[in-house]
Write a protein that binds this DNA or RNA. Structure first.
Lengths: 310, 310
DNA sequence: CTGAAAGCGCTTACAG
DNA sequence: CTGAAAGCGCTTACAG
C-alpha cells in the first residue's frame, strides 16, 4: 500500500520546473506548448522516480474517477458474459480507465453507496446494451439477443420442427430476461410462419421438473422441440426427458443457449448457441467514455454448436 | 451523475455552524464533544439536504478509499464463491465499505493501475483465505478446502471404496488449485489407511475425455471411485463413463465438489459437496479492516449432497 | 464546546 | 513557454 509515494511535486522538483509544468507535460495537455528540453527532463524524472498520478486526487479535481463499475446480478457462466467483460475491460484499459464489477442485488441504497464512495465515471448494467442490440439494417435486424434467440428457432425449424417450446427457469430467476427472450422466440417463429412457442417452466428440483415436462407434454402433444433460456434449463429438460423415457432428439429435440462448458457433458451432448460478445463490451466501453464506436465493426454473429440433442 | 451536489459546507451553512463542527457531528468523532442542540441541528440539516459525504474527497484526505477490491481469476459458479462474496460484501457494507470485483488475469501492471486509480483500502485475492483455512483444534484440522476435500474422500470410503482417483481438469485450468486439492485428498486418504488417489485428467473434449478415462481404467483397474476437482470435471467423468458403457456408481462412483446447479441435471444425478463460505467472506472483510473476528463463529461445515452417482 | 486554517495531490484558468 | 494561485470536499490538529 505504501507505493504511491512519489508525487507530482517530487517530479517537478527533480526536473527543476513547477508542478503546473510537470502536469502539462505528463498529461500532454493539448492547449499548452512546452519546450522540447523541458518536456524531456520532466518525462525522464517521472520515469526515474516511478511516478504514478494519484487517481484519487485527480478524481477530486475532475469530478469523477477513471473507474467504471459494471453491475451484474446474475452469474457469469456462459460465453457471453465472459467475452463481454473481456471486451469491456480491454477497451477501458486502452483508454486509461479501470473496470470493476459489483455483484448482487441492486438495492438502490447500496448502489448509491458505491457511487458516493468511488465516484465512478459510469455505472453499467450488465447486458443492457445486449438486451437492446444494435439495428444492423433497414429491416430492423438486431445483433443482440433477438438475433441469437432467432438462431435457436431457425435451427430447430431447419431440422423439421414446427411446434416449439421455449423453456424458462423456475419462477423468479431471471424472469425479466426470460420474458424478453420468449418474446424474441415468438417473433422469430412468426417470421418463419410457425406457431408461437409454448412456455415450459423447468424448476430446479429434478422430480418437479419431470412432472412439469410430463404435464406439458400432455397439454402440448404436438411440440417436438425445445429452445431453452440457457444451458442449465436445457440440461434440466434433457434430464426430465430421460426420466420420462423420451428419446432425445427423436421424441424431443433440445437446444441450449450461451455455450457453457456443461453442455458438452450431458448425454446426449447439448446443442447450444455460442455467443461472442466482445464487441458489445467494447461498444459499451466507448459509449461510456463518449467516444465513437464506428470503427469497432459488427459484433461476431452467434453460431450454433451442434451436438446430439437436436 | 449530478446527485452528489450537497456538500459539507452546505450542511454547515444550513445549521449555522462551521464545516469542522459539522464534520465532527456527522462522523461522531470520539475525541470531540459537541453540545446536544448543535448535534441535533446538524443532523437534521444533513438529513433534510440529503447530504452524502464525497468519498473521493474523504479518500484523498485519509489516504485510502473505503473500497475493497476482490480479485478473482476463475468463474463464479459454485456455491462457495457465491456465499463467500455475499459474506464479504455484507460485512464490508456493515462497516461502511464497498466491495468491487476485478475479473481476469492478474497482470501486475493492470493491478497496479487499479490501485492507482481508486486507492482501495485493500485488494483481496479470491480464495486466499479459503486456501489456508483456519486451524480449529490442536490436531490441526482446518475448516477450509482441506476439510471439504476430506469430505469427498470420507464419503467414498464410507460407501466401501478403497481405491480412489482424484479427477482434475485439462492442463492449465486451475492447475495450482488442483494440485493443492489433490494433496489434501491424498492426506485424507492416508489418514484413513487408503492408498493415495490416482490422478485422472479429464479434458474438455468429450472424445478425449473418454479416451483418458479408458486409459486410466486400464492402468488402475482397482479404482472404483472418483473424487473430482469440481462439478464440471465430475460431469465429464460421468459422460465418459457412460460412453464407455460403465455403470455409475456400480463400476465407478463419482463425487463432485461445490454443488453447482448442474449437478442435479446429470443422469445419474451427481453427488457433490455443498460448501458454505459466508463466514470466510466475513472473516476476510474483518481482517482487511483490522477488526476482531472472534465473534463470527466457525464456518458452517461442508456437507455431502447425496445423489445417485455414488 | 466551536471555528479558522492547513493540507491530502492534482489540474487549469490566469498572469507574465 | 513557464509559474503562482485557486480550488475540488473533506478531516483534524490547533487555538480559543
Amino acid at each position: 500500500m505504501g507505493s504511491s509515494r512519489v508525487t507530482l511535486r517530487d517530479v517537478a522538483a527533480a526536473s527543476g520546473v513547477s508542478p503546473s509544468t510537470a502536469s502539462f507535460v505528463l498529461n500532454k495537455t493539448p492547449t499548452q506548448s512546452i519546450s522540447a528540453p523541458t518536456r524531456a527532463r520532466v518525462e525522464q524524472a517521472a520515469r526515474e522516480l516511478g511516478y504514478v498520478p494519484n487517481g484519487i486526487a485527480r478524481a477530486l479535481r475532475e469530478g469523477a474517477s477513471r473507474l467504471v463499475v459494471l453491475h451484474v446480478d446474475s452469474t457469469f457462466e456462459g460465453n457471453y458474459s465472459r467475452t463481454y467483460v473481456r471486451g469491456l475491460d480491454e477497451e477501458l484499459a486502452a483508454h486509461g480507465h479501470v473496470l470493476l464489477v459489483r455483484h448482487g442485488r441492486t438495492s438502490a441504497k447500496s448502489t448509491k453507496e458505491v457511487l458516493d464512495t468511488v465516484s465512478p465515471r459510469a455505472v453499467l448494467e450488465f447486458g443492457e446494451r445486449y438486451l437492446t442490440g444494435r439495428v444492423l439494417d433497414d429491416e430492423g435486424r438486431h445483433d443482440g439477443m433477438a438475433a441469437n434467440t432467432a438462431l435457436q428457432v431457425h435451427h430447430l425449424h431447419e431440422r423439421g420442427h414446427r411446434h416449439l417450446a421455449f423453456a424458462v427457469p423456475e419462477r423468479g430467476r431471471a424472469s425479466d430476461l426470460a420474458r424478453i427472450r420468449a418474446r424474441f422466440a415468438a417473433q422469430a417463429a412468426r417470421s418463419l410462419g410457425l406457431p408461437s412457442p409454448a412456455r415450459l417452466q423447468l424448476p430446479a428440483d429434478p422430480v418437479a421438473a419431470r412432472e412439469s415436462l410430463q404435464v406439458f407434454r400432455g397439454a402440448h402433444p404436438a411440440v417436438s422441440a425445445v429452445a431453452a433460456f440457457d444451458d442449465l434449463v436445457a440440461l434440466r429438460v434433457l434430464a426430465a426427458a430421460g426420466r420420462l423415457g423420451l428419446d432425445v432428439p427423436g421424441d424431443l429435440a433440445v437446444i441450449g443457449f450461451d455455450a457453457t462448458e456443461y453442455a458438452a457433458t450431458s448425454t446426449p451432448g447439448l446443442t447450444t448457441v455460442h455467443i461472442e460478445a466482445e464487441v458489445h463490451g467494447r461498444i459499451a466501453a466507448r459509449s461510456v467514455l463518449g467516444m465513437a464506436v464506428d470503427d469497432l465493426g459488427d459484433a461476431a454473429p452467434g453460431r450454433v454448436i451442434q451436438r446430439a440433442s437436436s
